[in-house]
Structures are given as structure tokens and as C-alpha cells.
Amino acid sequence: MPALMNFFRSQQAQHAFAEVRAGDLLRVLKGRGLEVTAETRERIESCKDMDVLGTWLDRAATASRSEELFADA
């Protein structure tokens, strides 16, 4: 069990989780009909900070433009 827990804490696993969260974020934006520019997509996909991605995902629920995700970033 400790080896499994170490994997989930590893940088490799955290990057994989971030990729999934970024994909979810892009899916929410698309589902809401918001335009996602290449620059916005790159910024989202290159982010590996789960807290930042979580904040952006929360904002995606109410944003009127995808650029609003980065309001204070």
C-alpha cells in the first residue's frame, strides 16, 4: 500500500491528474458554448497546478468568456 500512495504523490501522477482536470475544464467551456482560443487552450493545458486548475474550473461554470478564468492570475 505505501508504494501505491507514493505513486499518487509522485510528480508523474500529479501531472496526469492535471491533464485530466485541464481536459475537464476545456469540456465545460465547450459545453457552455464559450470560445476557446489557441492561447487559452495552451495556458490551460500547460498548467500543472491542481489548485489553479480547480479555481479555473469553478470559474468556468459562470464565466461569460473563457478569458475570465484568468481574472487574477
Rank of each mutant, 00 (worst) to 15 (best):
L53A: 06
D49S: 14
S66L: 07
A63F: 01
G54S: 13
L53R: 06
F8Y: 09
R9F: 12
A71G: 08
R32S: 09
E19F: 09
K30W: 09
S64F: 03
D58A: 07
M50C: 05
R21D: 05
M5T: 10
S46R: 00
A3R: 13
E39V: 08
E67S: 15
R32L: 05
R21M: 00
N6Q: 15
Q12R: 14
M1C: 02
P2I: 12
V52A: 12
L34I: 02
L29F: 09
S10Q: 15
E67F: 00
R65Y: 09
L26D: 07
R32C: 07
L34G: 10
T37W: 08
Q11S: 12
F8S: 06
P2M: 10
N6H: 15
L53V: 06
L57R: 08
L34R: 14
E42R: 00
A38W: 04
E19V: 06
L53F: 00
E42H: 03
E68I: 03
A60W: 01
A13R: 09
E45H: 05
K48T: 13
R41P: 11
L34P: 08
T62N: 01
L57I: 11
C47M: 10
P2V: 12
S66W: 12
A18N: 02
L69T: 00
A60Q: 04
A60M: 01
R41L: 15
D49R: 11
Q14I: 01
C47F: 07
A16N: 00
W56N: 03
A60F: 00
F7L: 14
F70C: 05
S10I: 12
A61D: 10
L57E: 09
M50W: 03
G31D: 05
T37F: 04
Q12L: 09
E35T: 14
E35D: 13
M1S: 10
R32P: 05
D24E: 04
S64V: 07
T62Q: 07
V36E: 09
D24G: 05
G33F: 04
V36D: 08
E45P: 05
D49Y: 04
V36P: 03
S66H: 13
C47H: 11
R59N: 05
E67R: 07
L25V: 04
F8N: 02
Q12K: 09
K48H: 14
V28M: 00
T37V: 12
K48I: 05
V52L: 15
M50H: 01
A71L: 12
V36M: 06
A63C: 09
E19T: 01
A3S: 15
Q11D: 13
E45D: 05
D24K: 13
F7A: 15
E39D: 10
E42W: 02
D51P: 00
S10G: 15
K30I: 11
R59F: 06
R41C: 15
D24N: 14
S10W: 10
L26C: 06
L34F: 13
D24T: 03
R43Y: 06
G33H: 11
T40Y: 00
E19S: 07
D51N: 08
E68K: 04
D49N: 14
